[in-house]
Design a protein around this nucleic acid. Structure first.
Lengths: 354, 354
DNA sequence: ATGAAAGCGCTAACAC
DNA sequence: GTGTTAGCGCTTTCAT
């Protein structure tokens, strides 16, 4: 085998399709008009089985991927739903997304996520960016938005669902829980269980309006019982579990009389719980603990933390249902309001609850 | 004041802009041609300060939001990067996203996420959907794709970066760690620490190729030392922490001689650790434990779990850098390969390491 | 520094 | 059942 044939590698073969394929390519390959090709590819209108198959075959062999940009411009229909949330890394929004996806998966709609990091300016940016894609609807966390953001949402001319929170004035539809009420109910449950000296531990987040509202509801309900929060501390950054641990230790050391700690989220609550167990503190008889959110992630802790389920998945589902319904015309009204009930989960860190 | 003027509320005022505003509206409002308005709004070309301000003012008062659909079609430039990942709910991909966003935030590019749930068919769907928006690049988890998916990626004519894993044949660029090597190194560290009777606990996920490769590397390295995995178990669904707990208990009960447990991820590892501490098992002297991923979330556990950092954020960053560089022309080559080194974090659950 | 014309790739609306 | 025509709202290109 001395004389091997040398086959030059053509660039055209090595590098596939520089120019993305268009309908026209499929049209030419199948000998069917662009319009009919378009019909086949979208399952619109009547097309004979014969041509349909010709087209499908051509599209497949060419590897045609339709250009939604052009389609959207021509039809002024964009099957995207903008979902704007403050953060992706805590446990709550992934669950909301799950709920949204569950519902949208049965529709032509697709969620697109934007993250604001709890910053109003960033929210404006993200919103502007997303609206410039002309989505079919917007799902946005919270009721507090800058004037500019509210104006954009109003002018967008598409359904807007504000989620998570119902304490405030919605722009259009709203799905969530009352965080004020959640705070109040937790306060009542704690007092009912016989605790009196209550500490609060939370995130240092002036822009986390929902945490703030819970705290307000909490202190308000305590005030009605003549109780004041005995000690409080706020953190920012770092691992929530570790922070919960540290803050709990610090607080218990400086305020020895505390018999209950209310955490603004389950993760720091879990950290606190782990600290208490390590330190040999008797939970819940000497010290009660409660968090917020009801994150499944934490099932498996030595003791189940008392918490209040915020119904995140359900919120996502309901919001998506509203968008889907109003997009496909099955819902014609606007401004719907769905208030879910936060559910107390007493767990094992709340003494003789009831 | 008996004769109040009654000002009828016009629909035009109450209901803002049914029709989204166009460049033309801004043009008319400002008395500047559409073309110049476009230039101002994109900071392209020379425009006199006077007209620039006229235009900006008109755009702002009208509340104009540009239509990217039209812009993208006209310019055939879409500043989106498709990011395709198997799951959003575990701790790993949110971190990858953080890395990606960090880098893309300094560019005009924007990530758009699609989730495949570890299903190849779903991956195909999501990919098709995303490519139909003609993104500027694709970041996709893993090296295993269906033929159709590979074909689409190849034909897309945009930079493709496969992330997380480097054990296999990339389509174009690749950024990740060798999971086989991660498994091998963990095996060696365990043996070096004097453990002999090793159990494995993982997810029942035939489609999680990276977990599979780790396991393969692990057993391979053990085999070299003449050691076989003594017991193994796989779970699916439920809270990872709780599952780790249950599985650990079950395994330790049926295989009493075990002196080490290797978990396929940190969450089930943490569950196992919590069980052991509850059960009064001496960790790490009687039983060693290790997980995988290095999730910061778990800092704050009673004992720091041995793990191997998979460098998720860095992977995200590097992938984004490649896409950004190739999009803006500062990188012209393709097919780059970046292998990061998984870093062993011995924590406190690995006896006399070294 | 500004404007006019053409067209991106597709679909709505209307023929046939 | 299939084809033709005219845009969708922008940007490119070329003219002025």
């Amino acid at each position: 085998m001395t004389d091997k044939k040398i086959i030059p590698m053509s660039d055209d073969i090595a590098t596939p399709a520089r120019r993305p394929l268009t309908l026209r390519d499929v049209s030419e390959a199948s000998g069917v008009s662009e319009m009919t090709v378009s019909r086949v590819l979208r399952n619109r209108g009547d097309v004979s089985v014969a041509t349909r198959e010709k087209v499908l075959k051509a599209a497949k062999t060419l590897g045609y991927v339709p250009n939604k940009i052009a389609g959207a411009l021509a039809s002024s229909r964009v099957n995207l739903v903008a979902v704007i949330i403050p953060s992706m890394s805590n446990m709550v929004f992934p669950e909301v997304m799950t709920g949204i996806s569950e519902v949208l998966d049965d529709t032509p709609l697709q969620p697109v996520v934007g993250v604001t990091n709890y910053l109003p300016e960033k929210e404006e940016e993200v919103l502007f960016e997303m609206l410039s894609w002309r989505p079919s609807g917007v799902i946005i966390a919270g009721l507090e938005h800058s004037d500019a953001s509210r104006a954009m949402l109003q002018a967008a001319g598409v359904p807007v669902v504000e989620i998570m929170d119902v304490d405030g004035e919605p722009i259009d539809a709203v799905v969530g829980i009352s965080h004020r009420r959640a705070g109040r109910e937790m306060a009542r449950a704690i007092v009912k269980s016989g605790y009196q000296n209550i500490g609060f531990l939370g995130t240092k987040m002036p822009l986390d309006h929902r945490a703030r509202k819970r705290f307000e509801g909490f202190t308000e309900a305590l005030a009605k019982e003549g109780i004041e929060v005995m000690d409080q501390e706020f953190y920012s950054g770092g691992s929530a579990l570790a922070k919960g641990r540290e803050m709990t230790e610090a607080m218990l050391k400086r305020s020895e009389d505390l018999d209950f700690l209310y955490y603004s989220n389950d993760m720091i609550g879990a950290g606190g719980l782990l600290y208490c167990l390590d330190a040999g503190i008797n939970v819940p008889s000497d010290l009660g603990l409660a968090g917020f959110n009801g994150v499944e992630l934490l099932d498996g802790l030595p003791r189940k933390l008392a918490t209040m389920d915020s119904g995140r998945k359900e919120i996502g589902r309901e919001a998506a249902r509203i968008i889907a319904g109003r997009t496909d015309g099955s819902i014609t009204e606007s401004g719907q309001r769905i208030e879910l009930t936060p559910k107390l989960e007493p767990g094992e860190t709340l003494r003789r609850y009831r």
